[in-house]
Design a protein around this nucleic acid. Structure first.
Lengths: 221, 221
DNA sequence: GACGATTTGGACAATAGTGTCTATTTTTAC
DNA sequence: GTAAAAATAGACACTATTGTCCAAATCGTC
């Protein structure tokens, strides 16, 4: 194997120069998501990226290399979106219901149900078992830590006396489950939920959540 | 095309005689679920079913026919399991919390998170867009009507004064979302949740659900 | 045991996809 | 403008897979 022999194989392309890298990654994400790993053909990706097939092979040695690169790319993007959403939640909430709703909407719109979220959910489920390493990485560093981060937020709300939450990690899982309750079906269809759906789903979720975990500060009205 | 010409093509095999049909369907479900539609090869299925490849082609003309048959088979099985679970819920609940928990456990164990449930969830997501007809069928007649059926049950509980539920369909979606909240991660790993996990998840879900929708008949204890 | 139905194994053509190679063209930077 | 880097197009070998055809073997039932 010798790892390429200088002459004609020196097509390793320095990672700095790109130009075609972005369209390739985008098209590949699209096609991998639509067709799955084995269903996606390099030719299809090349066409969708408006790029010669050879160019793809120049940048990424083989299909699997490309796939891994795509997952890394999408995961990174999803992560920054997630951090942004988490950071946007106020330290000292004033109108808890509204702020939780806004947070849920943000989470759903920009992390869970955008293009990247859809890609990750679908791919982790269908190709996860085949790439344990990749899968583990997603679980550790990926959008999956929504759980812990949310748990921390709820712990703060508990200590601030705004909510009464015995088990914060559990509450975090329940919160994410609830804000998706209304969107599951749309999601499975591969469609993107409308803004109204996202907003409605968030409101319903937060209302139930607050009935379950709210401190009964105000008298029943 | 002529639709086969009597002589050698008369291998249509009467639907009654089977013998090899069950192992074929089982193996095919397994392989389709593991590899996806395009990743699954007929040879692999034949081997796993301990059957000659030709036999598969005798029964199901082509790969797609086999796939459709598998989905129909699994859906039918999942449906009877679902009906059994729904029927098992008592008309006049006596200990609502316990009975809801038992119901949730039953639902999770025998419908949502068994082999069939896993298959349907995975396949609908990955191959759904490619088979709109099949997908529609699943949505209409498949396990997806958990929603409506559950809604009906909750409506009854509301009228019986056992719960206070303004929107029963919403509550149904939230209920199913909650009983899965703790299992999502395990599920994505392709693992089957343990009995303890299922039980715990159900308890937590029902407790939050009852805090949100319970009539406050008893004084806070 | 004989009959028809079912199953099997192997050979086969046709197709599609991966990855390589090479020569040529375009782009970028100096 | 020129030279290096990157992109392209096409031909190619190789492999895997689908689906067909056929002859032989096996099974179930009477």
């Amino acid at each position: 194997m010798k790892s390429r022999n200088a002459a004609s194989q020196a097509k390793t392309i320095r990672p700095a120069q790109c130009l075609k890298r972005v369209p390739i990654l985008d098209a590949a994400a699209e096609v991998f998501c639509r067709e799955g790993f084995s269903g996606a053909s390099i030719d299809e990706i090349a066409e969708e990226a408006c790029v010669s097939r050879q160019t793809i092979y120049n940048h990424y040695r083989e299909k699997e290399t490309l796939f891994v690169a795509v997952v890394a790319d999408v995961t990174a993007r999803a992560n920054t979106a997630l951090f942004a959403a988490l950071a946007a939640f106020p330290d000292k909430p004033e109108n808890l219901r509204e702020e939780l709703i806004a947070f849920a909407v943000d989470l759903n719109r920009n992390c869970l149900y955008n293009q990247d979220g859809k890609f990750l959910r679908k791919l982790v489920q269908s190709e996860g078992p085949r790439y344990p390493h990749l899968f583990e990485a997603w679980r550790e560093h990926g959008p999956c830590k929504i759980g812990t981060a949310l748990g921390a937020i709820f712990a703060r709300l508990h200590h601030q006396g705004l909510l009464h939450i015995p088990d914060c990690d559990l509450a975090a899982r329940q919160f994410t489950a609830l804000i998706n309750a209304d969107l599951q079906m749309t999601t499975l269809f591969g469609e993107t939920p409308t803004e109204a759906q996202i907003r409605g789903s968030a409101e319903q979720a937060v209302d139930l959540f607050l009935r379950g975990y709210g401190v009964l500060a105000e008298p029943v009205r």
